[in-house]
Design a protein around this nucleic acid. Structure first.
Lengths: 102, 102
DNA sequence: TAACATCATCGTATTATTGCGATAAATTAA
DNA sequence: TTAATTTATCGCAATAATACGATGATGTTA
């Protein structure tokens, strides 16, 4: 039996990680917003979402840790934008995943 | 301010829902396995994964509830396969999402 | 300096996820 | 009928996710 196999492949782990970052509509919204705006401040995002500033900050942190976005301090504000390199990697992983069947 | 806006669009909700179903490497594995095998029994999947039968059953339940797979009783076993229609919908949602930037 | 603006982090509460063993349900085989 | 096989569900424990208000950190403006 294969029970003592190494758990999962690197790609499976990474895909699951990206998927988890996308597993909340607020984070989907933020990423789509950043796609349109190219870059924007935290306050702009807070104004758009139906939740507290601290909650938005938490979602931004998760997107950053997943690699989807990156922040740059622009005192007294923080400007966020898509991390294009990681975005493309995620895109490729999802495309490969969904491309298997067809 | 836009704080009293309807939370999220239908597509954002659905994409987040699909993403959540993909947010665990075991579920990625199961879907890829089903893609290769076309259809198989629960026991075949249990043999492949490093977790208890009850845990695998739980993951199958989540994939089924998300719409990715469907089961058919074939006594005394249950045969699972990809739900092609929903798979294609998820594929389209992810493609549209990642296609926005490029 | 003092007040303000912006954002991150802390502490907390609630709920969801993950995994397990045990058990139930359903069917088949002896 | 009894035993065996297969899968789902239950109950539990541990951990993670979600959201909030309060506070902290940092830099700006008055």
């Amino acid at each position: 039996m294969a029970k003592q196999r190494l758990p999962y492949t690197e790609d499976q782990e990474r895909l699951a990680r990206y998927a988890k970052a996308l597993a909340h509509p607020a984070r989907i919204y933020i990423l789509q917003f950043l796609e349109r705006q190219c870059a924007c401040y935290v306050g702009n995002i807070v104004d758009e979402l139906p939740m507290a500033q601290s909650s938005v900050s938490q979602h931004l942190k998760e997107l950053k840790e997943a690699g989807f976005i990156q922040g740059a301090v622009d005192p007294p504000r923080v400007k966020y934008c898509i991390n294009r390199e990681q975005w493309l990697e995620a895109q490729a992983l999802f495309a490969a995943f969904f491309g298997q069947g067809e």
